[in-house]
């Protein structure tokens, strides 16, 4: 069964509708990338799933209908969301950011182990563990945001443009960590990205969003081979 099922999703801001009926599903343990140009609605899609925008249609997580649920309720069900712009807690330290991600978990020892795991995944954070999150570089903040989301032990992780504003080398570091995550923990990923090349390399399936509608879906390899995609998003 799919871990995430989206059917006929419409969503928007105020009176404007941005998504005009999206159908999407992600299998447990799988990874899907959502590609598209700016303004196509990719971020709105993720926000709609976690309840950040007005939405209608049907969204189900592990069989549970979450279409009308509040953001924090959805998060507690096991959906992690790394928002665009990272959303780090800038007045808190790196350590506090990580601990904040695990606030709903009771077992202290497990939480400590979780912190250690995150630092293994992102060694850079270990070097800056006591620094204020505001003092981190863009790449480090992205790592922190991902690590913080992981601290909640989500079953599904939504990532909104992790490569945004990052230098190629740092982007590669972040995606290397995401590769490790997939192989080591079987985490289900839904990734929104403008950098199609690096995204398609990570995921099993992909979908292309244009002007609020899905225009193409399929296995990553197929999407990568599609002429239209190659021209528009892979610069070929």
């Amino acid at each position: 069964m799919s871990l995430l099922e989206v059917a006929g999703l419409r969503a928007g801001y105020g009176a404007a509708e941005v998504l005009h009926g999206i159908d999407l599903s992600v299998a447990e343990g799988g990874a899907t990338a959502v590609l598209g140009a700016n303004g196509a609605g990719k971020t709105t899609l993720l926000r709609a799933i976690t309840g950040g925008v007005r939405r209608s249609g049907r969204i189900a997580f592990d069989g549970t209908d979450i279409t009308a649920r509040r953001t924090d309720q959805i998060a507690r069900l096991g959906v992690g969301h790394v928002p665009q712009g990272r959303g780090t807690l800038n007045r808190l330290s790196v350590r506090d950011n990580l601990l904040a991600g695990a606030l709903l978990r009771r077992n202290r020892r497990e939480v400590k182990a979780g912190v250690a795991e995150c630092l293994q995944l992102f060694p850079r954070l270990g070097e800056r563990i006591d620094a204020s999150a505001a003092a981190l570089s863009g790449g480090e903040q992205q790592m922190l945001a991902i690590a913080r989301a992981l601290m909640g032990r989500p079953r599904l992780l939504l990532l909104d443009e992790p490569s945004l504003g990052l230098a190629p080398r740092v982007t590669a570091e972040v995606f290397a960590a995401l590769h490790r995550l997939r192989t080591e923990s079987g985490l289900t990923l839904l990734l929104v990205e403008q950098n199609a090349r690096i995204a398609l390399d990570l995921v099993d399936d992909a979908a292309v969003v244009e002007a609020g509608r899905l225009t193409l879906t399929g296995p990553a390899a197929e999407i990568a081979g599609d002429d239209g995609v190659r021209r528009a998003y892979l610069g070929v």
């Binding site: 924090d72 998060a75 992690g80 807690l89 808190l92 904040a100 606030l103 709903l104 989301a149």
Partner: peptide, 12 residues
């Protein structure tokens, strides 16, 4: 510090 991030972390 950041109410919307807090919600995404499951905080009421």
């Amino acid at each position: 510090d950041n109410p919307s991030s807090a919600r995404l972390l499951g905080l009421p």
